[in-house]
């Protein structure tokens, strides 16, 4: 088989993972509607805090935080939980036995997470814009789109590294992942400027990629800045993505190897 044919094969495999996840979304349409309502409402309530202060810029600041955090946490969650969830379903062995590159599998799940996350974020943003009468006329959409794409990279890397944790420890793995996600929420300045953090927490905000995503996104939407003006943030995000994706993937492969050595893949039978 030529390289092109192999690449096509992997491509269709990754489509398979994304497709499967969307079939599940369709199946749970009722719950999807519930979750979507919940996230939209929570973005609205957070935005209303800004309305109370009479500061329209603060409303936008908060809404961006809520929507962007929603997107990043979906991305991280879907990728980091894809293994735990398949083990729960009992299909993990089946998937792992298929002639699919692990990278393709994880990328297929990432592809789903990105499209699904973007869809939800778009709805959230639209409802908020209508509700608060936010004008996005001054926003630089090109910058915003680039920030969104680039900031997906480090989160995918982190998700990959965490995805394997449930294979190492059945329950603790998922627990650790949630704690990790909560810590990022705390230190990245989702609803406030990181300067308000106690000094001992501030160093953590420097290493969290979400800090740069939020800063760059706010500059793009609120101040309408061009790409060059958020160059530093973009550079940091690109570098952390380029580092974290291979590191995350390597963690995954090592964890999988260990699980296959010790028999941790198996659930029953």
């Amino acid at each position: 088989m030529t390289i092109k044919v192999r690449a096509l094969r992997e491509f269709w495999c990754s489509i398979g993972f994304a497709e499967r996840n969307f079939m599940l979304v369709k199946r749970y349409a009722g719950w999807e509607a519930v979750f979507l309502t919940y996230t939209v409402v929570s973005a609205l309530t957070i935005g209303l805090i800004g309305v109370g202060t009479g500061d329209q810029q603060l409303v936008l600041f908060l809404v961006i935080g809520a929507v962007l955090w929603g997107y990043l946490s979906i991305l991280f969650h879907e990728v980091s939980e894809c293994i735990a969830w398949e083990r729960g379903e009992g299909t993990l062995e089946y998937t792992f036995m298929a002639p699919v590159k692990r990278f393709t599998q994880l990328m297929g799940n990432a592809l789903y997470a990105i499209t699904y996350g973007l869809g939800r974020a778009a709805v959230q943003l639209l409802v908020c814009a209508l509700f608060f009468g936010i004008s996005l006329a001054g926003a630089n959409f090109l910058t915003a789109a680039v920030v969104l794409v680039v900031s997906s990279l480090p989160f995918l890397g982190l998700g990959l590294a965490c995805a394997v944790l449930p294979l190492l420890s059945r329950e603790r793995g998922s627990q650790a992942t949630h704690i990790f996600q909560a810590s990022i929420l705390l230190v990245s300045g989702v609803y406030y400027d990181v300067s308000v953090l106690p000094s001992w927490l501030r160093p953590f905000s420097v290493v969290s990629p979400a800090t740069y995503t939020l800063r760059a996104m706010r500059a793009a939407v609120m101040d309408g800045v061009g790409l060059a003006d958020v160059g530093n943030e973009l550079l940091i995000l690109v570098i952390s993505g380029v580092v974290l994706i291979p590191v995350g993937f390597a963690c995954f492969v090592l964890g999988e190897r260990w699980a296959k050595k010790t028999g941790k893949l198996k659930i029953e039978g």
Partner: peptide, 28 residues
């Protein structure tokens, strides 16, 4: 290879054809 295990693992809320469609993709 392929394997049929005693536990016949599927995505239980998906239909048989959806499960088979997914399996087909994995095997190209």
């Amino acid at each position: 290879i392929n394997r049929v295990a005693v536990d016949a693992a599927f995505f239980k809320v998906l239909s048989g054809s959806e499960n088979l469609r997914y399996a087909a993709r994995l095997y190209g």
